[in-house]
Design a binder for these strands. Structure first.
Lengths: 154, 154
DNA sequence: CTTTACTCGGCATATACATGCATTATGACC
DNA sequence: GGTCATAATGCATGTATATGCCGAGTAAAG
């Protein structure tokens, strides 16, 4: 069965949201199907995530999907995820401290990108050879951050 | 019962989403409640809409609420809504044409903001004294636009 | 002090989006 | 071709967001 590539579909979606006023993923599916691309809302949800489209409220209860220039600014996160997967061996927490264990010699590199996140809940980082100490404002913030970091490793 | 003003709450929310990594409205509610502001998710949904915050996908299944600089760009919509409410008397459609009836003398003003929308599905506008003809690419687009405009009048 | 009009917010629910799991397609290698 | 590993997708459902309706609060008008 013929199936246009995912890449092509995503390009069409990007174009669509800029050309038309689209407010739900179901609508996107509808437009696509008019163009002969038949996928379900589930797939579009995944596309929207990958394309990092946002659903911008108009302030009056209406919404419009838009591509976002914010994406660039956020790429620190992508970078972090990449390096985490490559070099991070372990994560732990004690109170308001996160302990990140990395491959030998990589602590400084990872700490660098963590710093770049510029998160307000992070007070600072301290890197040795293969260990980073991430100091958070509080235990609560540390726990949230731990969750977040863990999800990067999956 | 003491209840911090809506305005104050919304300022706190804006600050919150920039300081912390927040991915659901429930989380916002939680943070607020720690600060003594107790409201339900429903209220936050309304706030998010009014503040025009977006839920930006990180590309890996995570989301973060952000305030958006897109808002400024989009303010044309707000302007349009305002003028529509004040000056538009009637909306109609024939095929690919939208007919907007305004208060006497206001057609040009309204047409101006419609033009500024810079929508691809609008070919152009033609304004008389109290009537604007909005020429759309097709009947389908015209219908969608009619719906959209109608919702501005509510 | 009423009445009226309006704003705000909760509750319940509708709508919309995300996702675990199973299935099928794709491609690399033998 | 057959086998394996990986990626893509649908289905069903879980989670998250939006909203209709109603009641409470407030202010202006009478």
């Amino acid at each position: 069965m013929y199936m246009p590539s995912k890449e092509y579909r995503q390009r069409v979606i990007e174009e669509l949201v800029e050309r038309e006023f689209i407010s739900t993923q179901a609508e996107i599916a509808e437009h696509l199907s008019r163009r002969g691309i038949n996928v379900t809302q589930a797939t579009i949800s995944r596309d929207v995530n990958e394309l990092r489209l946002v659903r911008l409220p108009a302030g009056n209860g209406q919404h419009r999907y838009r591509s976002t220039p914010l994406a660039a600014q956020e790429d620190v996160v992508g970078e972090l995820a990449q390096r985490f997967k490559l070099f991070v061996r372990d994560l732990d927490r004690g109170e308001n401290l996160l302990v990140v264990t990395t491959d030998e010699g990589h602590a400084a590199g990872i700490a660098y990108v963590v710093d770049k996140l510029d998160r307000d809940e992070i007070v600072g980082t301290l890197a040795g050879q293969n260990t980073i100490l991430v100091v958070c404002r509080g235990a609560q913030q540390a726990e949230a951050l731990l969750d977040e970091f863990e999800s990067l490793l999956e």
